[in-house]
């Protein structure tokens, strides 16, 4: 038998320290909360590693959508595929990554229904850690979706005029905004009864938002009343901001509006989600 000499094997021989002799505190510090969040995010990554099939949405969707939309709409909207790429890639990027954020809510619901959540709740850890950890782990999914969409575009002939800096900035902007939006779906995830209803509600919200935007088609081809909506749609601002960054390397008003929108969403939905979550947790 192999022996480990790392510790003087405490378990079976040592007696347990009695409850009254322990130093205990009733609060979790911010440092501990961060550490718990990172550990929970690590759990999220392990789960992704264990079940790689749940990455289908962030791997296949960017590839298929990019191919499909570019070749279907390219000729009609921009004359040819080459001219359409700078318009469509930012559009698909935003649409794909935002759609990915729905998974946060769905998985959160599934997770909360599992027994392991009860164990988390019985541990002396930050109450918020399972939630914040899940949201943190999901940024990895956004990163994958972002990288694949941009790579797909480059393979098809996209040469971003904004340069490497512009592309990275655009990618970061999309990830930050999607992370903010994922709070909305996390909220649905916490309050919904089943995972499939989260999926349902979220898609109902997401479809009009991503399609009634300038992501695929310039807004000026639409009827006036629709243009009004498209122009105020935050997704349009994000798409425009990404185009500015990728194609011109400029960080303009739309980018600021997008960040402001993201901040507003987090300011509203983070407390709502946390409150609903704490009530259940």
């Amino acid at each position: 038998m192999t022996t480990t000499t790392i510790t003087p094997s405490p378990r079976p021989t040592t007696t347990i320290v009695p409850g009254v002799q322990r130093t205990l505190k009733n609060r979790v510090s911010i440092a501990e909360t961060l550490s718990h969040t990172v550990t929970m995010a690590y759990r999220g990554l392990l789960k992704i590693k264990r079940t790689p099939e749940q990455l289908f949405d962030v791997t296949l969707q960017p590839i298929i959508f990019t191919l499909m939309f570019t070749y279907i709409f390219g000729g009609a909207i921009a004359g040819n595929v080459q001219n359409y790429l700078p318009i469509i890639i930012p559009g698909i990027l935003v649409q794909t990554v935002i759609t990915t954020s729905v998974v946060t809510g769905v998985q959160l619901r599934e997770d909360m229904d599992k027994g392991v959540f009860d164990r988390f709740r019985s541990l002396p850890i930050a109450r918020i850690a399972p939630l914040s950890g899940a949201l943190l782990a999901d940024t990895v999914r956004y990163l994958i979706a972002t990288t694949l969409t941009i790579t797909m575009g480059v393979i098809m002939g996209l040469r971003p005029a904004g340069g490497m800096g512009g592309v990275v900035a655009a990618a970061l902007l999309v990830i930050v905004c999607s992370w903010a939006i994922s709070w909305i779906f996390a909220f649905f995830g916490v309050i919904a009864r089943t995972a499939s209803s989260v999926q349902g509600i979220s898609m109902l919200v997401l479809f009009p938002l991503t399609f009634l935007s300038n992501a695929f088609v310039p807004a000026n081809t639409m009827p006036g009343w629709l243009q009004w909506f498209v122009n105020i749609n935050p997704v349009s601002h994000l798409v425009t901001a990404v185009r500015d960054l990728m194609n011109n390397g400029t960080f303009g008003a739309d980018a600021w509006i997008s960040l402001l929108g993201a901040a507003v969403i987090v300011a509203i939905f983070a407390p709502l989600t946390v409150k609903a979550y704490m009530r259940k947790a």
């Binding site: 789960k47 264990r50 027994g115 019985s122």
Partner: peptide
């Protein structure tokens, strides 16, 4: 405390 039961379980994916 430590809790073990039909409910407080472990993560099945890990």
């Amino acid at each position: 405390i430590g809790v073990t039961g039909q409910y407080a379980s472990v993560d099945e994916t890990l």
